[in-house]
Amino acid sequence: MNNYIIGTATATISDVNINSPEFRNTSRNMVLAHTVLGKIFSSHEQLLGFLKQSTTGVFVGTSRGELKCSSDFLRSVAVDGIARPILFQNSLHNSILGFITKTYGLTGPSFTLSNRYFSGEDALCLACDLLDAQLIRYALVVGVDTIPLGIEAIFCSTYAKDVKISEGAGAVLLTNEQNLGTIKGYLGPKAIIQDVKYNRTKTALSAMGFDKKDYYDSNAIQELGMAVEANSYKVEIKKPDGSSSVLSLGFGFKY
């Protein structure tokens, strides 16, 4: 691991104008992912141009993906007897990734990962793996999840009763030691990601001791970004089922 975090951003749905023409025929997930990456790119006017090269990987971690589009598609089939292409196009988990790579012109390796409460951690770890392997030079990691409007009650039934479900997105930009020098004209290192520890439990659905407000399954990337900005060496991310992850950061590097 020991990869450098050189950019962080978070986004909530209140940050965006979801009715903007550029977001026509998109989903809330796509808009959030687009917005959070836009915040990273806005840190330097030439950063996006630099990252469009095929050596930048994009990693999306999402637990529930495009459930809203899938359910709208199935509703249309069930109620109207019509299968709508635009809803199917947007219905796979991978649609978020397709949208952001297309709109920002990102041509490198890209991946969608989904692993319930650990979706963000999995995206982060895979990005680090490919940086370690030097298959990519830079990694954009996004964690994004939203509440599917229209089936909120059914959706929330998959969480313990007291969990306050929310939606949001976090993004981090990573690089490895070998490539830190080439990006330093745009951004400098903020922290080193040293370790990601998974503490899985087999506990049944229970919110006992889970007091996190505004929780969403892939929130690890947002939590990581907040820890970087707060210079925290360690962040524990509690999950609604009693499991957790611990992300370890380093700051004492020379640059």
């Binding site: 469009k52 095929s54 990987g57 994009v58 196009q89 947007n90 649609s95 397709g98 949208f99 790579t101 297309k102 920002y104 012109g105 990102l106 041509t107 490198g108 390796p109 890209s110 991946f111 298959l135």
Partner: peptide, 20 residues
């Protein structure tokens, strides 16, 4: 691995990013 950055469903017609 590579991405077309072209369309939500259709492949890039030139195949150039697939070739990458």
């Amino acid at each position: 691995f590579s991405s077309d950055a072209y369309h939500m469903t259709a492949p890039m017609p030139t195949g150039q990013n697939t070739a990458i």
